[in-house]
Amino acid sequence: MFSYDGVVTAVRILEEIDLSRRNSVLEAVLSSTSLTNQVNRVYLALPKLLSAAIDGSIVEQHGIGLMVFDETTLEEVVAPKHFQAKNNSPALVGEEPYRILHDEIANLRARIDSLEGVAESMRSEIARLRSLKCSPPQIRTTSISSSPSPTEQTPSFMKDNPWVEVLSRRGQEGDRYVS
């Protein structure tokens, strides 16, 4: 967290090692959201490798900025909203215990709100994905032929196949079984 020209900015950095921990991306988004009433701008910074795991529109919706980096570059992908900080961060200015407690409750409320927001976004995103895959079952039919002989629709591997005759005699007397 740092302050420049009167604007307090918080950056939550997610590293590649976090890939090994499940839900780390989701946790990072949530904890960043909770900072929006303490500071003026909030960024989530993550390695390029991880960037595919984040839907930019979700962080944008919550006013969080997104930066991606690799060994040589740092790039702002989504610009953050400017928040009107309700209070200064305890890390920057000392607070009385009462004030700190009040802020913590406010933070928790904000986290719950943001959690609900993220869950709602995910629910609608998942519903959208489900609607894509829930296209009506593909039903392939061929018309029932009255003739048992191969038709034009008969696949090539069935045409002139001696097995059709051999197999149609299964169970008939004289059929030889080698075990």
Partner: peptide
């Protein structure tokens, strides 16, 4: 499998000895 299913008569019942039908 498709040819087998098409051609083998439906009254040829499964038999555990010959593992067919």
């Amino acid at each position: 499998c498709i040819i087998y299913g098409y051609a083998v008569p439906e009254d040829y019942e499964w038999n555990w000895e010959r593992m067919e039908g």
